[in-house]
């Protein structure tokens, strides 16, 4: 299994409830910055050769922003922004979904509320 199907299956194995929207996947994570503790919805764009290659963009709902660079319009709709946040040390093995969730959670913790 690969691509979106593998990503969704991996998240389900972690007890999460991912929702597929076209080529993107939205999932609820129960963390957030101190001033806006979770849960928050985040989106990802797993490529066809996931888990060899991780998703590039992290999609966040408006209200949460990541510092240092401007977000871009998201394919998920006007309520969303996407942020370029490649995984810092990706190993495309069996723990791929866990790696991505840890990465997304670490970004949510440092997100800023606007």
């Amino acid at each position: 299994m690969n691509g979106v199907a593998a990503f969704v299956a991996g998240l389900r194995e972690l007890g999460l409830e991912p929702e597929q929207r076209g080529g993107l996947v939205v999932v609820i994570l129960d963390v957030g910055p101190a001033s806006a503790r979770g849960p928050h919805r985040v989106g990802a764009d797993p490529p066809n050769d996931y888990p060899r290659v991780p998703p590039h963009w992290l999609h966040l709902q408006r209200g949460l922003v990541l510092a240092e660079d401007p977000g871009r319009a998201s394919e998920l709709g006007d309520d969303w922004w996407r942020w370029s946040r490649p995984h810092p040390k990706w190993k495309g093995n069996d723990n791929a979904a866990r790696q991505w969730v840890a990465h997304a959670r670490s970004l949510l913790l440092v997100a800023q509320v606007v």
Binding site: P47, V53, P54, H56, W57, P86, H87, P88, W90
Partner: peptide, 13 residues
């Protein structure tokens, strides 16, 4: 190479 940058290149970034 960094596998995480593969998709960054693929999407044109």
């Amino acid at each position: 190479y960094d596998p995480a940058l593969v998709q960054v290149e693929r999407d044109g970034s």
